[in-house]
Design a protein around this nucleic acid. Structure first.
Lengths: 114, 114
DNA sequence: ATCGTGTATCGTCGTTATACGATAAGCTTT
DNA sequence: AAAGCTTATCGTATAACGACGATACACGAT
């Protein structure tokens, strides 16, 4: 299979890549876990999820590669934080994208034909 | 591989499933194409994308299964419309999710440790 | 230096996604 | 009935994903 991803505009490719980072419940659960602590988590992420350590580490790497999470080696364990700015940007981008799809209807009439 | 998706809360599984529907640039491009017309498209979707007809049909099915697009057989061709409500709901859900992750900081101080 | 703890990476396996050609199915028109 | 057009589906091949055990790595404590 050839990868046709690069045949599309960068904006769409970037959005799709970010959506892919959020496309697994384990990764959403990781984000929630990080958020619930208020601060970074240096460990314990594995204990919360019903997955093996190697799998959680993979998901964390995916989130880090997507820029949604920052990780730094912090002594014996590794410290993971949410990247609040990236998350907000992502939410904004998605909101903006959907808005371009469904602009506020001026006169309240849906032009749908179906 | 055992599918561990159902080991997570429904809310997260649903959000992840919707994100997955948006996780390919071709599908985002299809949504844009549908939106640009203002009305539904009964054909021509294939012509806009750099993909084979079978591939586009598959992506359309994915979007339909995710509830983001409605399709009805319209004479010789098939008519596809955006489901504006579903799209808005999706955007709201994502916004809400991100907000629970990054609540508005009351005193403007980031509690990050990294 | 050794042990223990916690994380990352490697290798692997099964599943799912992506992409396409070929074909079928449905409707229009001839 | 046959031809033509459009879309869906089937079959298939390759790539990517998800999951895990095993192992390597880094560091603190002993």
């Amino acid at each position: 299979m050839q990868n046709k991803t690069d045949l599309f505009p960068d904006r769409l490719a970037d959005l799709a890549a970010q959506a892919k980072a959020l496309s697994h419940p384990a990764r959403l659960a990781i984000l929630q876990t990080l958020a619930q602590r208020g601060t970074c988590i240096c460990g314990e992420v594995v204990d919360v999820l019903p997955l093996a350590q190697a799998t959680v580490s993979q998901h964390l790497r995916t989130l880090r590669d997507a820029g949604l999470v920052r990780g730094e080696i912090e002594g014996p364990s590794t410290c993971y934080c949410l990247d609040d700015d990236a998350l907000r940007t992502l939410a904004d981008d998605f909101g903006a994208f959907v808005n371009t799809l469904t602009p506020d209807i001026p006169n309240g009439i849906e032009p749908d034909c179906c």
